[in-house]
């Protein structure tokens, strides 16, 4: 479990988390980016940009 930087709620990580993975905070729906696995560190994920996609 990690702490949401926005609402300070607990955030559950996926199994085998990897850096740059995006998780959603169940409490405040913020999109969070995992920037460190050990120790676990979350920051607000960047906003989707106009040229993102396939």
């Amino acid at each position: 479990m990690a702490k949401c930087p926005e609402c300070e709620g607990s955030v559950a990580l996926m199994e085998n988390p990897r850096v740059s993975e995006i998780v959603e905070c169940a409490g405040c729906s913020s999109e969070l980016e995992l920037i460190s696995v050990d120790p676990v560190e979350l920051v607000l994920a960047p906003e989707i940009e106009e040229d993102w996609g396939e």
Partner: peptide, 27 residues
């Protein structure tokens, strides 16, 4: 090379590992 680790990127890194190949992730 990526900036977002989506399920696809995780599958790709897992596939490298299954084949015994090292793949460096660069943000």
């Amino acid at each position: 090379l990526a900036s977002r680790m989506r399920a696809d990127e995780k599958r790709l890194l897992d596939a490298f590992e299954r084949r015994g190949a090292h793949c460096e992730y660069v943000d």
